[in-house]
Nucleic acid binder design. Structure first.
Lengths: 198, 198
DNA sequence: TGTGTTTGCCATCACCTGTAGACATCGCTT
DNA sequence: AAGCGATGTCTACAGGTGATGGCAAACACA
């Protein structure tokens, strides 16, 4: 007998996860401020007050989303063309995770802000910074942050739709420009070769 | 005698402008959502209800700020190193104008969103796009938007402070990386540099 | 000075937010 | 089957938001 054949009508774990998923989607789509607890509850099909019960509040739910979001989990190596393509495609479909938004926006809740910053550093900045350092580039930390900020600017703007051509362009159209922008090939060719074609 | 020697205690024009200035600063600093009408009134030293009277409401005040903000008014030619330096310095000191924020964030008010988009296109995207077109680059529109989105990502992230090294770096440290990122010299080589007058 | 208009202040509204608490119901354990 | 904690539902509240209408003082003008 399986342990869970009966779809329990009362399942705290399920409710928790549904809240988490709904919050992830809504935070990614509208950002933290413009997402209300009632919206999350409605989308999840769970009473909004459960947010307080299970997570302690909206801010802590946001933090939980940050931790649970495996967004660009395979270290987002923006300099690997394949990885860049995968990441761009992913963001184009599911939208930028809350972590990306945290790079550009400010939230009022200090713990939430700190958590976002920590996740951003741990999962995205650190790997790229390490790579640049290994390759002997100067100012690897600063350089990594600039590259990532630029990438985030492009993907956020694309999804936001403020830029017409960028929002309308397909991933295939954007990708080469992003590669050129980030200097993927330039960085990647540690052995040295010809510059990016035009 | 002069028409306005008396500093009129009741001066609608002055109040209007003080509201406009306060709104510009606060919108730039906190964004639209996180700025309340009461904040604006307090900072301006003007009763918040004047916002409704003079502008029609908060959203329309925002639009007025967009139009009045001469932000990167000399066409923000990101490919001219001098202009890029000036712009970066300016943003570092006074913060990104509301127009930049509009590129990455969404507001609920459709007219405000549309106004921001129009200003962004008119003042920033169009000039750069035209330049790229003149220089014979492919996809000048898309390319311009990518470059601008990347730039905005960097300056917003820098000011936001989520990236430690980027926030702590001086303008002089960031500038060369930005030039390299945007390919200022690469692009500029083709056209040579005679900066257009303001 | 007299008069109508402009300008600012005040109280208040209607709405929305997050969340706390009381109450009802389910489901596991004994 | 009975008990009881876990889970869900509902109402309500305190705080804050943008916006409105009324009213008094200050102004421009005759």
């Amino acid at each position: 007998m399986t342990k869970e054949p009966t779809p329990r009508r009362r399942d705290a774990a399920a409710s928790r996860e549904r809240l988490l998923n709904a919050a992830r989607d809504l935070f990614a789509d509208r950002g933290y401020d413009r997402t209300t607890a009632r919206d999350i509850g409605e989308r999840a099909g769970v009473d909004p007050t459960m947010i307080a019960r299970y997570f302690g509040g909206k801010a802590q739910l946001y933090i939980a989303v940050l931790r649970a979001d495996d967004g660009p989990n395979p270290p987002a190596d923006l300099l690997d063309p394949d990885r860049l393509a995968a990441l761009l495609d992913r963001v184009g479909r599911t939208g930028p995770g809350p972590i990306f938004q945290a790079a550009v926006r400010a939230y009022d809740d200090p713990p939430a802000q700190a958590a976002a910053r920590a996740e951003l550093e741990r999962r995205i900045v650190a790997p790229l910074s390490q790579r640049l350092r290994d390759e002997g580039h100067e100012q690897p930390d600063l350089r990594a942050e600039v590259l990532i900020a630029a990438f985030i600017g492009v993907v956020l703007a694309r999804r936001q739709g403020t830029f017409g051509h960028l929002a309308g362009a397909t991933t295939d159209e954007v990708l080469p420009l992003l590669e050129e922008l980030l200097g993927a090939r330039r960085y990647a060719e540690s052995g040295g070769g010809d510059p990016a074609p035009e």
